[in-house]
Amino acid sequence: MNWLHTFFALILLLTIGAGVIRILKGPTAADRMMTAQLFGTCGVAILLLLSTGMNNLVLLDIALVFALLATLATLTFIRRTWQGSGKRKHDYPL
């Protein structure tokens, strides 16, 4: 256990906690979704820090999956929920 890395991870966790204020305030659904994106990036950073701090390389793979899933969540939200299905003028080739 490396205390330095754990300490940094803890600060990032507090950052996530502060992001909750934005979820509560909104005002649009997209603002809330942006906080979810912050959770994704911050979560990846925390996992990376812990993988070194706890000397456990499996956490790197978890971080990879975490990054993928956070992205998919945002993209799905934009395409299916916020944008509506029929309003698109042109497609965005991803």
């Binding site: 997209a30 942006m34 992205t71 945002t74 944008q83």
Partner: peptide, 27 residues
């Protein structure tokens, strides 16, 4: 290499979703 791979993935993903959010807000 694995760390850089994770970073690249997050970079691509967040710039794409950032553009999508901004575009939907404009629309």
């Amino acid at each position: 290499i694995k760390l850089i791979l994770i970073w690249l993935l997050v970079l691509i993903a967040s710039s794409a979703s950032c553009h999508l959010i901004a575009r939907s807000a404009m629309q």
